[in-house]
Design a protein around this nucleic acid. Structure first.
Length: 1028
RNA sequence: AGGCCUGUAGCUCAGUUGGCUAGAGCGCACCCCUGAUAAGGGUGAGGUCGGCAGUUCGACCCUGCCCAGGCCUACCA
């Protein structure tokens, strides 16, 4: 910009106008601001240039590497990145998450700590495999692959998946760096890297060693057509017509049922009653009990699962009725009697008594066609007394059916949970091809479940158990590929025990008593809040930011079932289990470690490309004291093994990153902080906590920080389908990274965050305020050499400003320590806007412009400006990496090739200023006088404050300590008199006093007179231009 | 349906162990400056603190219910 007066210094001989008008405007030179730091940030163009400069600092190292080298001996702050899924562009959630993490990294670094940050990606898993499979099928390429042998087919899919993951790791990595986040992007962690995979398996080995890993049955979505388990994402819901049946299950002990309903012990027959009994338990007190055996009526839409029935569930809180329906006596939820009997067009319906579900618990019934108790199921112990009895389930509702739920744990998720809790058999007589096995009743063996629906129904009709049936249409899951309906079927899966091992496995000789992960986790969560009596407290508790995260994680831990860690897919890390020729499963801690070693060398592809003996080449059966080792002892034993088909749940892979990244790279353990969205209480926080407790006995993190989710301006969730999502690319293109970061730093991130395009425009406004403040300071330092200028005295404006700056610096650093970026943001903004722009800078403008350039007063101001600009850049650096560096480099006049950067520094120490203790009072007086000045402007003819002088009251008697000119400059008026007698501020029109305005400074300070050159100048200005 | 969380001026948020006329910034309105100028400064108007009920001498702050929204589970025999 132009900095020299444009008007030639011609002698203006005409009379000098009273006010500094156009005529005399540029007659006298003033020290105009001048800087190369532009008002317009142009972030979209300039940020990439900063990135480029940072990537090639001295010795060819990037900023991240340089910083880590510089902090090599500093105290570490161990921060650990939770891996996003390597799929798609980064979205608003990532934007906030990654910016917050970067604030942590940069604030710790600026505070002098060594804060390594290794960004990671979750690469395995179904979403990618699903997408790749869809593409292969749609591209017509899958048929060829499908024809390959199992291992080769999986390898073909895995190669595609890897390519896909690599593509998005690269894309997202670039986008994250475009957000100016700092980290080891040259060496990120990928869950599909061989070393990472090996480290994951080593944690699995530790858990096996602790006796926490077991194999058991679990119902999964099963495709009969493809004979494979399906994930939720592979299901399509379509309408399907099914049978709906109401079935009477005969009570085993009629009297027990009648007792539960409180019926009298006498039999029916003597005195019939026909009035309805009142509602409530024991309502049948005076009623005789019917002669026939009562039954429980259940409802199901999957009659084929009835062979696997092992219990019936009621809601203990609901009311149940004993009903006589056309001669039969049965139990139905009281609220559903009319609906059920009405649908069946029953003619004679009479409620005999009612009771609560709670009183039905434990009553036994006879299965309508199964006589032999089913086997309990792999890895479990069952309670024979519970089989075929009434159990409790709070998911039983009164919306459909009879209020009594047929429970087949082998064929449903809820039933499975109930079965586990009630120690019922997990029984599944259905084979992988959808036909019944030899354990089913003879008339069903070999029959397909779809045919069984009708067959079972007919059987029940013939045996008199069927109350009513009809067909109906409902939404039913179908296999996405074959478009055929799926079923729930039990399969063998791997679990991590949350409560120590199930009895059956615990008895295994040599296995230690399992750690109780739930108890340990709850203790860790509770430590630091209330303590749980009687539990083993871990070495350290966990800090939660915000505190309510503790409750949330606690709730999840209390209710979570054992963790099913196996999946039947191709794209993942295999669970290195083998099967012997007799069908026994072989996996020990030592064998897992041996396979891990191979995986470290060759990656998990080795599982699909190498034979068992190669995979176990580091395994020494003789040296393995696990009893299972005997399965592979003897020559050639390993060669006869078959490899398992399971891969690990991806949550186990990411949940062991504390080992695969922090310990593997010697970054420190446990981490000081994990920082993720609140959904990760269920996800990564928990999936990290449990394996770490199992393997190391301590939580992997000392503190958990959570942030909320992005919602639109109306508080609705953002989604592509709603069309209210905002694209990060758009933001970066329209606003640049620093504005986005400035916005993130302003958020109350612990709750849901509203996002709208216009918020970024507002953040941009606020950013510009800060930028312009920096620019104005820089522009007044153009002729300043650092170091010049005296230490300011206590009552100087500089002492005040520097004192305010020290307070700001302490406040911002404290806020950074508390992860309260919002507080830092507000303090920084307030300081730039109020303290600097509105107050200090406005006050010193006159001396900066009009004092002789090298005058002591001006240099003193410049020294303060320099200190504050430098310090402010450092405080802003974690939030605005580009802008802070740009300003700092402008301050230090760094040439384009100059490597210096604010990011290589630490926060500035206190300035050492000792402001006078009465500054507060002086500023209050100024504020009060400012109001008086406004009134005067409204009432008298004063418009321009420089036309005014102010008589300041000084009741406290301290204002005289201060310089009257400083006070006048703070007020923006030409003159201040301190009046110890006055009660309130009085404004005087200096024009009425006949005081002329200085042609150079426009002030009317009473010293203005015509000088030798004919101009009207004040004493100060005359001296400044050499006319003294 | 359950767990956790949120609901204070148009917007984003403060409101400490319940206690005087509920605060800030942005925006808005009006004014000033025109030597920070696609800048800068000043003044002011805006709120039945989601709703209802209760506890209390007194509630934005405590309790209950309801409404709206978010995350996570469970989504059904």
């Amino acid at each position: 910009m132009s900095t020299s007066p444009t008007t030639p210094p011609s002698a203006n001989t005409g009379e000098t106008p009273a006010a500094g008008d156009a005529g005399g405007k540029h007659k006298y030179p003033v020290n105009l601001p001048r800087t190369a730091f532009p008002m317009k940030a142009n972030l979209v163009q300039n940020e990439p240039a900063s990135l480029k400069r940072w990537s090639g600092l001295a010795a060819g190292r990037g900023l991240y590497e340089s910083l880590l080298a510089a902090r090599a001996d500093a105290a570490a702050f161990v921060f650990h990145d939770g891996p996003p899924y390597a799929n798609g562009n980064i979205h608003m959630g990532h934007l906030m998450n990654k910016c917050l993490k970067d604030f942590v990294v940069r604030t710790k670094m600026m505070a002098g700590r060594k804060c390594a940050f290794v960004p990671g990606w979750d690469c395995h898993g179904l979403p990618i495999e699903h997408k790749v499979m869809t593409d292969l099928i749609e591209g017509g390429k899958y048929d060829k692959i499908a024809a390959l042998p199992d291992d080769q087919r999986k390898m073909a899919v895995r190669r595609e998946c890897r390519r896909y993951a690599e593509k998005f790791v690269k894309l997202q990595g670039e986008q994250m760096q475009r957000l100016l986040t700092l980290g080891d992007y040259a060496r990120p962690y990928l869950t599909m890297d061989p070393a990472y995979e090996g480290a994951v398996l080593e944690v699995l080995a530790d858990l096996v060693e602790q006796g926490l890993v077991y194999r058991a049955l679990k119902p999964v979505h099963w495709s009969i057509a493809n004979e494979t388990a399906l994930a939720e994402a592979e299901l399509e819901y379509e309408d399907r017509e099914d049978l709906s049946v109401y079935v009477d299950f005969e009570a085993a002990d009629a009297d027990a049922v009648y007792d539960a309903f409180g019926l009298a012990t006498q039999l029916e027959g003597e005195n019939d009653e026909d009035e309805e009994p009142p509602a409530g338990a024991g309502s049948g007190e005076h009623r005789p009990r019917p002669a026939q055996r009562p039954s429980f009526m259940i409802w199901t839409t999957t009659p084929w699962t009835l062979p696997a029935n092992v219990g019936i569930a009621v809601n203990p809180k609901h009311e149940y009725a004993l009903v006589r329906v056309d001669g039969n006596v049965t139990v139905i939820a009281a609220a559903l009697v009319g609906k059920v009997t009405g649908a069946a067009k029953a003619e004679d319906v009479r409620v005999l008594a009612t009771t609560t579900g709670a009183r039905l618990l434990g009553l036994r019934y006879r299965h309508p066609f199964v006589n032999n108790p089913p086997a309990c199921g792999l890895g479990r112990v069952c309670d024979p007394a519970k089989l075929w009895s009434v159990v409790a389930a709070d998911y039983v509702t009164l919306e459909d059916g009879t209020g009594i739920v047929h429970t087949a744990p082998g064929h449903g998720a809820e039933d499975f949970a109930t079965g586990l809790r009630e120690h019922l058999p997990i029984y599944c007589p259905v084979q992988s091809d959808g036909t019944y096995d030899a354990t089913a009743p003879e008339w069903l063996r070999g029959v397909s479940v779809w045919d069984a629906n009708r067959k079972v129904t007919e059987w029940l009709r013939n045996s008199g158990h069927l109350f009513y049936d009809h067909t109906f249409t409902h939404s039913y899951p179908h296999d996405w590929r074959s478009k055929t309906p799926t079923i729930f079927r039990c399969t063998e899966q791997w679990f991590i025990s949350v409560d120590g091992l199930p009895e059956a496995a615990r008895g295994r000789a040599g296995a230690p008593e399992g750690r109780n992960l739930r108890r340990m986790a709850l203790a860790a969560v509770d430590a630091g809040a209330g303590s749980t009596p009687g539990t083993a407290v871990p070495p350290e508790g966990v800090k939660f930011v915000p505190e309510w995260g503790r409750n949330r994680l606690r709730g999840m831990l209390e209710s979570r079932p054992d963790w099913c860690i196996s999946r039947q897919r191709a794209w993942g890390l295999p669970i290195p289990a083998f099967t012997t020729p007799d069908g026994a499963t072989f996996m020990t801690a030592a064998s897992v470690r041996a396979v891990a070693k191979v995986v470290r060398e060759k990656g998990s592809d080795a599982w699909f490309t190498l034979p068992p003996e190669e995979l176990l080449k580091y395994y020494d059966a003789a040296g393995d004291n696990d009893p299972l080792a005997r399965l592979v002892q003897g020559a050639g034993a390993a060669g006869r093994l078959r490899k398992g088909n399971d891969i690990l749940d991806v949550w186990f892979e990411s949940g062991t990153s504390w080992n695969a990244v922090l310990r593997e790279r010697n970054l420190g353990y446990p981490a000081d902080l994990y920082l993720e969205g609140s959904d990760q209480h269920r996800g990564w926080f928990q999936s990290s906590l449990l394996p770490a407790l199992g393997a190391t006995g301590r939580p992997p993190f000392r503190a958990l920080l959570t942030h909320g989710f992005m919602v639109d301006k109306n508080g609705r969730k953002m989604s592509k389908s709603l069309g209210n999502d905002i694209k990060v690319e758009d933001l970066l293109r329209d606003h640049g990274a620093d504005v986005c970061r400035w916005w993130v730093s302003s958020l109350a991130y612990e709750h849901d965050v509203k996002v709208d395009m216009e918020f970024f425009a507002l953040a941009g406004e606020s950013y510009r305020k800060v930028r312009n403040t920096l620019r104005f300071m820089l522009s007044n330092l153009d002729d300043y050499e650092p170091g010049a200028g005296a230490t300011p005295g206590a009552t100087t404006l500089e002492a005040w400003a520097l004192g305010e700056f020290d307070a700001l610096s302490a406040r911002v650093q404290a806020a950074y320590d508390d992860y309260d970026y919002r507080a830092a943001h507000l303090a920084l903004y307030d300081f730039c806007s109020r303290t600097l722009s509105a107050t200090y800078l406005a006050a010193v403008k006159d001396r900066l412009y009009c004092d002789r350039p090298d005058s002591a007063r001006r240099r003193q101001t410049q020294a303060a400006l320099w200190t504050m600009t430098d310090g402010l850049c450092r405080l802003l650096a974690p939030l605005l990496p580009h802008t802070a560096d740009e300003a700092w480099r402008a301050l230090h006049k760094a040439a384009p090739g100059d490597d210096r950067s604010v990011h290589l520094l630490t926060f500035a120490p206190p300035t050492g200023a000792r402001p006078d203790e009465h500054w507060k009072r002086a500023m209050d007086a100024i504020a009060a006088a400012g109001k008086a000045l406004e009134d005067a402007k409204a009432q008298s003819g004063i418009q321009n404050p420089l036309d005014a002088g102010v008589h300041l009251p000084d009741t406290s008697g301290v204002l005289t300590r201060f310089d009257a000119t400083d006070l006048a400059d703070l007020l923006g008026v030409s003159k201040v008199w301190i009046d110890s007698a006055a009660e309130s501020a009085r404004v005087e029109d200096l024009r009425a006093r006949g005081w002329e305005a200085c042609a150079r400074s426009w002030k009317r300070d009473g010293t203005v007179k015509r000088r030798a050159d004919g101009g009207m100048l004040s004493d100060r200005d005359a001296a400044a231009v050499g006319l003294a």
